[in-house]
């Protein structure tokens, strides 16, 4: 056990050891990597540098410099929150790529067909986008269950749970609006069934369905509406709520527990 720890430390000591010294000594290299970066020349594994790695990096400093010991055990969180975020990143990247080849018009179906048959990696990227969307719904739901079973919604984290429920709803809406975009029989009828459920809303049912479908039934106007919601409006909203969610995790004293 003790021996393994030393090995682990050695491994993170200098992750850029294989690079040439002349490259690492250049002023260009030094200007890119801020002090404390493991890629910088002369990085040594010290508590101070371990703090700098997190603090001096715009992406990493989403994390605090130190976390509770029990929180880094994979069996506690199963990394579900992180993986929810990560699938969202994958969906954003593959989604932007797919937007180059897709028109939300009567050409939508033809575009998907040509994406699968005549565009390099088109089929793979489309598959990744679709399966990652399903995985995101599952992972977000599992994350919610994990949080419930740990009682992690209790004070002072009550409101972050509420934001989490909003994030789950936004995830479902993102998935649902994306469902229509291939414009095949599966898409249009699944969305029709979903829209019909919404039309049972008391009092304003007809109006809700009309607003959702941009008409009385799923047409190309619905396709455009769902497209704008899917690629712009809902991602915009979900990113705002994710920012609040992550910020609250830290402000509420980090991850809950230990049990």
């Amino acid at each position: 056990m003790k021996n393994e720890k030393i090995k682990f430390r050695d491994r993170v000591k200098d992750i850029s050891a294989g690079l040439g010294d002349s490259l690492k000594e250049s002023s260009l290299w030094g200007s890119i990597f801020r002090p404390g970066s493991p890629f910088r020349k002369g990085y040594s594994d010290s508590p101070r540098n371990r703090s700098y790695v997190v603090m001096n990096n715009v992406l990493y400093h989403l994390h605090p410099v130190k976390v509770k010991r029990h929180a880094v055990r994979l069996s506690y969180t199963l990394c579900l929150g992180g993986l929810s975020f990560f699938t969202f990143i994958v969906l954003t990247i593959t989604g932007i790529w797919l937007m180059f080849y897709f028109r939300p018009t009567e050409m939508a179906y033809v575009d998907i067909q040509s994406l699968q048959t005549s565009i390099a990696f088109g089929s793979l990227v489309r598959n990744m986008h679709r399966w990652a969307a399903h995985i995101m719904v599952i992972v977000v739901f599992l994350h919610m269950s994990r949080v419930f079973y740990h009682g992690a919604y209790k004070a002072p984290r009550e409101f972050n749970w509420v934001i989490g429920v909003i994030l789950l709803l936004l995830t479902l809406l993102l998935s649902f609006t994306g469902y229509l975009l291939p414009w095949d029989q599966l898409a249009i009828w699944a969305v029709t069934v979903g829209g019909n459920m919404a039309s049972y809303t008391p009092v304003i049912g007809a109006q809700v369905k009309f607003a959702l479908f941009a008409g009385l039934e799923a047409t190309e106007a619905t396709l455009l509406r769902f497209y704008v919601l899917h690629v712009l409006f809902l991602p915009f909203i979900i990113v705002i709520f994710m920012a609040i969610h992550f910020w609250r995790v830290r402000k509420d004293g980090g991850i809950s527990g230990p049990l």
Binding site: R50, V54, V65, K66, V67, V72, C79
Partner: peptide, 12 residues
């Protein structure tokens, strides 16, 4: 009881 985020959290 706390540990450094790098590497104990970021590597997993």
């Amino acid at each position: 009881d706390k540990v450094n985020t790098w590497p104990h959290l970021m590597l997993p």
